[in-house]
Write a protein that binds this DNA or RNA. Structure first.
Lengths: 123, 123, 123, 123
DNA sequence: GTGGTCTAGACCACC
DNA sequence: GTGGTCTAGACCACG
């Protein structure tokens, strides 16, 4: 059963996207694996203090991406093969890194400055 | 006169924020300088194919930040001293870099991996 | 004993309906005949990896339609006379064909185009 | 502005899917074209006597498929190039025809019988 | 128990 | 005005 203990609501982006991001981050970090059981919508909704529909939306999108599998009446599970994991990792990393790289380029930051900035703010 | 030729609508974030970001990036990059003339709201609205209210909102916020100065009926100009430029630069870079750093941390990426990723996606 | 070797779970419609459809198709195709023995609920549940209640529901509905006959503690058998077979055949075919016909009409497909499409996708 | 006058609720499948199907059928039939304006969610919800959220769900899925384009605060439009139209047509026809063909095959119907059945039920 | 759909209505950001 | 998100709660089909 996937734990949401470390999940912190950010409140700046929609909750359902935060949930999706949390799952995907877990996949990239390796803490969420193929076959893991998802908490039921009701349970998670109670745990996070969020409306069940919000959870439902997150789960529906994850299902559409093929990351979880749900059947009415049965529990939901994570379904991941090596390819999918790699794809998620690629997507997540590419998105974050490219966003930063492009912004910095547009600001006229050089590559070496960029590396220094990362070091500075890594803490 | 500040040119919006290189401005590309991203469609993922609100238009008025994209405009503000474009101006600020130009300031950090040094392509926008103190005393530069802003295009008129009407002209920019037509050029970008966007509702005039959207342009107005962007200009109003830039004015609120003290980055441009408008007098009703007259043209708008950029007003920048060294401090302001440094403040904008600091704000933009910190925001960009911290967003990337936090995302990568959550994905279990190490500092050295992060630096490698920046290098990989830079060119 | 009716074999479920060729049974493939479709995952888009409820399992119990898939089971019923599989049986009815077999009847129409002539591969399932009067007096054939149904697998036990327990066995089928294990074979398909499905909740026993789901099998039970399918069997109950088939019994309700008079297609199988069960006696508690005894095996279930298919009971079919000519009329019943004809009724099932009629029902299955009408349902299938009408669904396709109506969809195609709504898409502005002409009768001759429809016939061509059937030919195209048949093989 | 796309008209929903001919839209009839079927009630057997979810409303949001019926709306999507209606749009796609219109695309295949050629009555819905690139650049057409979608009715606003509120307006359509009132017109069909359906909750706005239901409309929202349909629109969101259409957007995800790249068939319509929405921006917060602005109207939604249909966006279709030749490829997309062909893809939708292919998807819709293939889905309906293959469903029928496979069902009939499983029932042991021959190709000529199938063609005769289509003719019979076309009316 | 589970997932899926829907209603009723609110709030916010955007144009 | 528009689209997007969320709450609160209901109902149904499924396993």
């Amino acid at each position: 059963m996937i734990s949401f203990e470390q999940f912190l609501m950010d409140d700046s982006s929609p909750i359902y996207l935060q949930i999706i991001g949390y799952i995907k981050s877990g996949i990239v970090a390796g803490t969420i694996r193929d076959g893991d059981e998802m908490p039921s919508r009701r349970m998670l909704s109670a745990l996070l203090g969020v409306n069940p529909n919000t959870i439902q939306k997150a789960y529906a999108l994850l299902e559409e991406e093929g990351i979880i599998h749900s059947r009415s009446g049965a529990k939901s599970f994570v379904v991941l093969d090596g390819e999918k994991i790699e794809a998620v990792r690629e997507e997540m990393l590419k998105h974050t890194v490219l966003a930063a790289v492009n912004s910095m380029k547009q600001m006229g930051v050089s590559k070496t400055e960029a590396l220094a900035l990362i070091g500075k703010y890594w803490s």
